[in-house]
C-alpha cells in the first residue's frame, strides 16, 4: 500500500501536499478540542486540573507511537535497506523526544496538585523517562558517528532494543502498584472518563497525531534534501 513511498521522488511529491494538509487538520482539531475542553465543567474529583489531561495524555500516547514508527523505520532500514527508512527514523527521533519531554513535564505539573509530589520513581514515570533516554541516546549516537551508513545501522539496533521498553510503559500500571493511575479511556464502565470529556479527549489525540504526521513528513523532506545537497557537494568537489 505504501510501497510508492519507498521512492524518494514519489515521496517528495506525496509529502508536498500531505504535510500541509495534515498540519491544517491538526490545527483545526486542536482548536475544536481545546474549545470543548474548556467548555466542559471541572471534574468532580480533580477540579480544573482535568485540563492538563487533554495535553498530557495525547503527548504520552504519541511518545509511544512515535517510538514505534522510529522502530519500524529502523527495521526497514536495517533489514530491507529502504532508502527512505533511515531518513524516516532519523526524522522521528527529535519529534519523539519533544513529545516525551512534554509528557513528563505536563505529567509532573498534573501530579503535584493531585499526588502532592512533582516526581515519584514509580514504574510508569520511570519507564517513560527511560523512553526519553532512548530518544536522546539515539540522537547522540547518530551525532557521534561520522559515517552515515554506520550511524544508521548502530542507531537502528539501539532503536530496536528500545522497543522492549514500550510494553513496559503501557502495562506498567497493570504489572506494578503505581501512583500513576491506570487507563481511564479503556476502564470499565462507570470507572473511566466522564462522557463529557471523551469527545475533546479523542479530538486532541487525533490533533496530536496529525501534528506528528505533518512534522514527520516535513523533517523527512529536509533529510532527503540534506542527502541530495551532500551528494551534489561531493560531485562538485571532484
Amino acid at each position: 500500500m505504501f510501497a510508492f513511498l519507498y521512492n524518494p521522488d514519489r515521496f517528495m511529491a506525496f509529502s508536498r501536499w500531505a504535510a500541509p494538509l495534515f498540519g491544517a487538520i491538526a490545527a483545526v482539531l486542536a482548536v475544536v478540542g481545546l474549545w470543548l475542553d474548556f467548555a466542559a465543567p471541572p471534574d468532580y474529583q480533580q477540579g480544573y486540573t482535568i485540563h492538563v489531561m487533554f495535553i498530557h495524555v495525547p503527548a504520552s500516547m504519541m511518545s509511544l507511537f512515535v517510538y514505534l514508527c522510529l522502530a519500524v523505520a529502523s527495521f526497514l532500514g536495517l533489514v530491507f535497506r529502504q532508502p527512505l527508512a533511515d531518513a524516516a527514523a532519523r526524522a522521528a527521533a527529535p519529534l519523539g523526544a519533544g513529545l516525551t519531554l512534554l509528557a513528563l513535564v505536563t505529567g509532573s505539573l498534573w501530579g503535584k496538585p493531585m499526588w502532592g509530589t512533582w516526581w515519584v520513581w514509580d514504574a510508569r514515570l520511570t519507564s517513560e523517562l527511560v523512553l526519553l533516554l532512548f530518544y536522546l541516546g539515539y540522537m547522540a549516537l547518530q551525532a557521534a558517528i561520522d559515517d552515515e551508513a554506520r550511524a544508521a545501522r548502530a542507531c537502528a539496533i539501539l532503536a530496536l532494543v528500545g522497543v522492549v521498553n514500550l510494553p513496559i510503559v503501557v502495562f506498567s500500571v497493570d504489572w506494578w502498584n503505581t501512583l500513576h493511575q491506570g487507563s481511564t479511556l479503556f476502564a470499565p464502565s462507570g470507572q473511566g472518563l466522564a462522557p463529557v470529556y471523551v469527545p475533546p479527549f479523542l479530538i486532541m489525540i487525533v490533533a496530536y497525531l496529525g501534528a506528528f504526521g505533518a512534522l514527520w513528513l516535513v523533517r523527512i523532506r529536509a533529510e532527503v534534501w540534506r542527502r541530495r545537497a551532500n551528494v551534489l557537494a561531493v560531485r562538485a568537489a571532484r
Partner: peptide, 27 residues
C-alpha cells in the same frame, strides 16, 4: 461558556499549556 478560570490550580494548569505551546512552536 468557557471555564477559563483554573482557580487554585492555575499555577499548574497554565504552565502546562505554556510549555506545550513552547515545545510545539520549537518543533
Amino acid at each position: 461558556m468557557l471555564y477559563l478560570d483554573a482557580g487554585k490550580y492555575a499555577p499548574y494548569v497554565w504552565p502546562a499549556y505554556a510549555i506545550t505551546v513552547v515545545v510545539f512552536v520549537w518543533l
